[in-house]
Nucleic acid binder design. Structure first.
Lengths: 193, 193
DNA sequence: GAATTATTAGGACATTTGTCCTAGGGCGTC
DNA sequence: GACGCCCTAGGACAAATGTCCTAATAATTC
């Protein structure tokens, strides 16, 4: 856990505000107010808004890596690890219904803004993809591992978008159940989708 | 086809700009420039930015309804109609890779902005859901029809998000092929997912 | 304790934002 | 030809935006 320096506080609050309100709609003033510092102080830590975005992406990458490493170290099998990933949809359902998936919505927004950081944001999705591919590989999926990983990522992204649009908690649960059924079906894993 | 009045031109351009740049990031000036009129003229047609958004949503609803009605009238069976829906992912892949799904990204953005129009935007997704549910019902899915419709909608939304993030055309194609396989499998249709 | 650096507050700056007003031009109707 | 009405241009307006400067304070180093 990093020290609670002003800089880290800014990144923390910016992370939440970018998630809950979007990058474009969140202003310097919003973040400064949330942190409780003056706008002038802000400039000492971050020269531009894009610099904050970069820092937020770095933070999210570190947290994602830490989360994946944590699941990896828990000692259970790849099937259980994949379920840990999927159950994020349940654990974070309230926030997902309100704001969507933090990574997916950021990638979408940055794509529309034609923002240089979009590539880096996508790398977070890449972390999930590679980690999931590793799990599927361990399950014996062979060269289908990455395709299965991408498919599962897309599935969860779709659930997040729909859950946000319809504010439908039951839908999240039924889709997660569907993924669990899909995971339990060994045949599906050698023949993707 | 509506007449090309200034008002309709504004809605048309706003529709494209909202899609390609996002609602929040698109300004009055952007739309006025795209249409080729002065900002003052603008106000005569739309009092607020939200009014334009409403008009854009109405336009998209009409176009969606027209598209669905068109597929309905083509005389083929429900299975072919559902495939028409899915093949939008292929037909619009260039735009989807650049800007995502017009409806999904709008719903996500409006959710973050806590915008009053989010509900209306979601109704466009509702049109697709109800139409798809009708097709699944015609396929004999019974009371599973709506669940299947939501699942397929989520699937396509997920593909759109991933395609945007990774700019991956091959992924779109392979997922569409997966959906076609899923559609061809009658067993899946009585046991969703 | 002095010197240097890091951090802070407050505000300036030009630009852009959404919104709104006014004045005039083009139009058809009496 | 005069009237009224829709449409248009241009700009005014306060507020907010990202960016940047200066001066004062706090912390660290010697």
């Amino acid at each position: 856990m990093p020290i609670a320096s002003t800089r880290n506080l800014i990144i923390e609050k910016a992370d939440a505000l970018f998630y809950e309100g979007g990058f474009e709609a969140t202003s310097f003033a919003d973040i400064a107010t949330a942190v409780g510092i003056s706008r002038g102080n802000f400039y000492h830590h971050f020269k531009t808004k894009d610099d904050i975005l970069d820092a937020v992406i770095v933070l999210r990458m570190e947290r994602t890596r830490a989360m994946l490493d944590g699941w990896q170290a828990e000692g259970e099998g790849p099937r259980e690890r994949i379920l840990s990933f999927i159950h994020m949809l349940i654990a974070n359902r309230a926030k997902i219904m309100a704001f969507g998936c933090p990574v997916g919505t950021l990638c979408s927004e940055l794509a529309k803004l034609d923002h240089a950081a979009q590539k880096r944001a996508t790398e977070i999705l890449g972390l999930f993809r590679d980690w999931l591919a590793g799990q599927f590989h361990a399950l014996g999926a062979g060269d289908q591992a990455e395709a299965l990983a991408l498919h599962l990522l897309a599935w969860s992204q779709g659930v997040a978008v729909m859950a946000t649009a319809f504010r439908d908690e039951a839908f999240i649960c039924s889709e997660v159940a569907g993924i669990e059924r899909w995971m339990a079906n060994a045949t599906s894993l050698s023949h993707p989708v």
